[in-house]
Write a protein that binds this DNA or RNA. Structure first.
Length: 111
DNA sequence: GACCTGACGCCCC
DNA sequence: AGGGGCGCCAGGT
């Protein structure tokens, strides 16, 4: 098992903090870290799937609430299945009531 | 140390 | 509504 790059670990930490039943976005995470870019968050999460199994990577979607990363799971339906198993409904490849489910990492500062 | 690659986001037709 | 261009920037070669 290879040692993870520091940047990846920071992304993992934020992702683990996403509450059950909520979702966040690539942009929000990149924003909060003030490091890297939205694009790199996705890259890091792909790594997370390969190396870690304790990261709720399915809770990260793009800014429209779309499951753009679903093809990186075991099967293209896995991401949606995981979300629905925790009460997050998905229709037409998009999180239903995305705006209400959205969680921004800055909530960590408040807490 | 240059070059390539990305689970994005934004702007422009 | 849909498609293309480009900035983004850490890590792996």
């Amino acid at each position: 098992m290879k040692k993870q790059a520091p940047y990846f670990e920071q992304v993992y930490e934020i992702t683990r903090a996403i509450p059950y039943g909520r979702v966040s976005t690539y942009g929000a995470i990149a924003d909060y870290l003030a490091l890297g870019s939205a694009r790199m968050v996705g890259w890091a999460l792909r790594n997370a799937l390969l190396w870690q199994d304790d990261i709720p990577a399915h809770r990260v979607v793009n800014r429209n609430g779309e499951l753009t990363g679903r093809m990186h799971f075991d099967t293209p339906e896995t991401m949606q299945a995981l979300l629905e198993s925790e009460g997050t409904r998905v229709e037409n490849n998009q999180v239903v009531l995305f705006r209400e489910k959205f969680w921004h990492p800055e909530a960590l500062d408040h807490a």
